[in-house]
Design a protein around this nucleic acid. Structure first.
Length: 568
RNA sequence: GGGCCCGUAGCCUAGCCUGGAUAGGGCACCGGACUUCUAAUCCCAACAAACAAAGAGAAGAAAUCCGGUGGUCGCGGGUUCAAAUCCCGCCGGGUCCGCCA
């Protein structure tokens, strides 16, 4: 295992400075391998010159182990590494294989909810960001040693679904123009539900009689009419079936699908209402029942966070409380992936659970900003959507074209490349940043994109394929290590730290950025450092470097949910 | 109107939580890199042929590499030895403040 370079430096510093030094006082540097600005802080405390303090500290540190040299420069303490000592740990990158970068098991179980798309139509590109972040986080957190369980909440009793169910029941014809626009997907169940939704919703808005029948059905469903409930939830199940096809294609899996209707069937929604009715925050108005959370800084326009309509049927928030009470029993920590439009509701939910229920378990959230489209206003209700189905089809087709043009890879890697490009494009941006979705950019295979990273991996594989040396006969030598080799070694050694910080900050883009940098360093190495034509000692060392790069790239891509083909 | 998020070259983005050396990448643009092939031109030569060199085009190595151009870190103030980073005020974009989910 690689020694934690930062930790080693921290120890040396602490001993020499006779002051507590945190791991964050150790950083990268433009002029050295590692540096620390710790002398500035000490200088301030003691009223001395930082330059002198740095020199004093540097003088007191005797380089040992992986540290080759320590120098004070302009008040910084600079460390230089003995890269030869980092070669042996590289063999463990290869021997740990798919586990390189995986951290020690922690005794904590995380219940991660993500995606949870309304079952009223196909998955559109905006929502894709939720699934990709969620799936990647599940992988990253598992790699961080947590036990992770992923949950998909299916909102199968909402008003939207009730509208669609009523539409099907009354035989409302789907909207012709919408069907025509998405005709290549007309046999997918999620699209069929979507077509029906557009038509029924029109009716819902224009025909009060229809709207009344919908609301009556919701009431019946919620008050024990199993048949009415089934009619509604069946529509949701149908839609979910189509959505699942897409998640299979994307290799995004869920441990559990939780149906909102369950909480009505088993009366948990009722118990939530009964419990909250007794709380000191409850208020009743002519509109229904709600909580007054203004003392927590949460005030809606009407003043209350509504729990039930005037006819007694529950609203989303109430069912969400029931759902979260259940999830809290399943793990030690909850994390939800939610769009930034849900920030307010999430705060309400969190406040109610913490303040009214007195729940202590951490309830975390990852918010992400919207993906918008130039000149395109999306509205499922009006029949305008940007289904991922289309995006995937186009990406795969583009990958096929590139393959044909270059004639160097087999066509069956096209889905891996096309889907990888989409995933990487969305994951490389930090979650809170808005994305203006640009079709060309998303499908770009050059520069900071997954095909570049995948290609570096394929190049590693290609060199290893041509090599005849068995990995266990490797002869290591640190003779004439080049700068390119050194940088590559250092980057590979940092992978576990990267995994840790991506897990701590819940940011997959940290992995994405790292992978591009690693691939970029490898590409330079590939150009500058011939491997197979070298003398035995250097060749073996470089083979090891290639093999550990390959493994690190593969593991990193895995954390983003992207496959690494051996050839392309 | 109030809350939260975002603002970094023409475009996209990392860094911000935890202040530290010259703000790190990508796209686009300009230039450079090895090999092979192609045909016309210029120079040298009395002429011809051969060879060499320079330039042009195409293909491959190469889904590559190197260099360059491009920055008021939205604006203004403050804190600090030091601010993209922290604090305050403004501007622009997003989002929320529904008996919708």
């Amino acid at each position: 295992m690689f020694p934690s370079i930062k930790e080693e430096v921290r120890n040396l510093l602490e001993k020499a400075a006779k002051e507590p030094v945190s791991i964050d006082d150790v950083a990268g540097s433009p002029v050295a391998d590692i540096c620390s600005p710790i002398s500035f802080r000490i200088a301030k405390k003691k009223g001395k010159d930082p330059v002198l303090i740095a020199e004093e500290i540097a003088k007191r540190i005797k380089p040992t182990g992986i540290i080759k040299e320590v120098k004070a420069e302009k008040g910084y303490i600079n460390f230089f590494l003995d890269y030869g000592k980092l070669l042996t740990p590289l063999t463990e990158v290869v021997s740990r294989g798919a586990d390189y970068g995986r951290l020690k098991r922690r005794d904590e179980k995380i219940v991660l909810e993500h995606t949870s798309i309304n079952p009223s139509g196909p998955v559109h590109i905006g929502r894709l960001r939720n699934s990709l972040i969620g799936d990647s986080l599940a992988r990253i957190l598992r790699f961080n040693g947590y036990e992770v369980e992923t949950h998909y909440y299916v909102n199968d009793v909402g008003k939207q679904i009730a509208i669609i169910a009523q539409g099907f029941k009354e035989g409302i014809k789907p909207d012709e123009s919408v069907v025509k626009e998405y005709k290549e997907y007309k046999d997918k169940p999620d699209f069929q539900v979507f077509f029906e939704y557009v038509a029924s919703n029109k009716l819902f808005e224009s025909d009060p009689g229809f709207a009344e029948r919908v609301q009556k059905n919701i009431w019946l469903a919620e008050n024990g009419d199993r048949e009415a409930l089934k009619e509604i939830t069946d529509v949701a199940k149908k839609c979910l079936k189509g959505q699942k096809e897409i998640f299979d294609k994307l290799d995004i899996g869920f441990d559990f699908f939780d149906f909102e209707s369950e909480y009505i069937r088993n009366n948990e929604v009722k118990s939530v209402l009964d419990f909250l009715k007794k709380s000191e925050y409850v208020r009743k108005t002519e509109n229904g029942l709600g909580l007054d959370l203004s003392c927590f800084g949460l005030e809606r326009r009407g003043g209350l966070s509504m729990l039930a309509r005037s006819d007694g049927t529950s609203v989303y928030l109430t069912r969400d409380i029931a759902y979260h009470l259940r999830k809290i029993e399943l793990g030690d920590r909850l994390i939800n992936v939610l769009g930034e439009d849900h920030k307010f509701e999430f705060r309400e939910l969190k406040t109610i659970l913490a303040e009214v229920y007195g729940i202590k378990k951490p309830l975390g959230v990852v918010h992400y900003s919207f993906v918008s489209f130039e000149g395109l206003e999306l509205s499922t209700r009006k029949g305008q959507t940007a289904p991922i189905d289309k995006l995937i089809d186009e990406a795969v087709e583009k990958a096929e074209n590139e393959i044909t043009k270059r004639d160097i890879a087999s066509k069956n890697v096209a889905p891996v490349i096309g889907i990888g490009a989409i995933k990487y494009h969305i994951l490389k941006t930090s979650p809170l940043k808005q994305i203006l979705f640009d079709w060309d950019e998303a499908l770009s295979f050059e520069g900071e994109a997954s095909p570049y990273v995948q290609y570096a991996h394929a190049r590693c594989c290609s060199i290893l394929r041509k090599s005849k040396t068995a990995p266990d006969q490797i002869n290591l030598s640190d003779d004439s290590l080049t700068k390119d080799e050194e940088q590559l070694i250092l980057k590979i050694a940092k992978f576990p730290e990267i995994v840790e910080s991506a897990g701590r900050e819940l940011k997959p883009n940290i992995i994405a950025t790292y992978l591009f940098e690693l691939a970029s360093l490898f590409s330079r190495f590939y150009k500058e450092c011939p491997v197979l034509s070298e003398m035995e000692k250097i060749r073996d060392r470089r083979l090891l470097l290639v093999d550990s790069t390959r493994q690190t790239l593969k593991n990193g891509l895995y954390l983003l949910g992207i496959d690494a083909p051996d050839r392309m």
